[in-house]
Design a protein around this nucleic acid. Sequence first.
DNA 1: CGGAATCCTGCCTGATACTG
DNA 2: CAGTATCAGGCAGGATTCCG
Lengths: 130, 130
Amino acid sequence: MTDTSPYAAHGGDGVLFAADCPSRPILDQIADKWSMMALSVLQQPTRFNEIKRRLSGVTQRVLTQTLRRLERNGMITRRVIPTSPIGVEYALTPLGESLVEPFGELYDWTIAHADIVREAQGDYDARSAG
Amino acid sequence: MTDTSPYAAHGGDGVLFAADCPSRPILDQIADKWSMMALSVLQQPTRFNEIKRRLSGVTQRVLTQTLRRLERNGMITRRVIPTSPIGVEYALTPLGESLVEPFGELYDWTIAHADIVREAQGDYDARSAG
DNA sequence: CGGAATCCTGCCTGATACTG
DNA sequence: CAGTATCAGGCAGGATTCCG
């Protein structure tokens, strides 16, 4: 990669996340757990309530906001199915598909390190209590 | 791919993010922008106020909470430097270092797609207004 | 079914002051 | 310096209800 901007590469230098770094406004939009989980679920087109069931714990209000935001950012599409009762199916755009990869690696990381993290939590809590 | 657990791999099937998926409690802890930015900044050991300056926009309250949470999850260490005035330096643990990779890919994604996302936002807003 | 509207609570923000 | 404490005000999120 031929660095054309101070933000071209991650790691190494100290300009990471400066106030004007172009990563900031985007991270504000997508770097939250519900966005990540929704994107992952949408690897196959899915309807609203099905997404809601998968993301157990999310409220319909927050899920709606999340899907709207993802749609506005060009990551998913919203298609109304004129049945009765009505259906709405969400699906990834090519842009959204390209995001699944980084998110997937993060997902895989959590699976791989779940035990270690739980252990660390136990240690910390024991130290705090003692 | 030899799936040993229903959660062994990302993508493909439909069990993603079931209520008992071990990814959930961890994502709750780390899948937020401040955690991600803090971890990235801490690729080199950094003191509190320096981190705060890098993560422009964060309040000291939220940053403290974020660092505590990362420390509890075994991702960073907190070292008090007995100078006067006192100093506190945060640094990555090996666990935290292993997280930098996935986060870095996400960071690189935002840099690479910043323009496309901005364009999508403009389109969406224009459609909404029209 | 999908979502908008409503109300209500509570945490976050932002500012400021205080401690070791 | 690195927090904790406090308080005002605002906005996010939960629960519920209603509509196409």
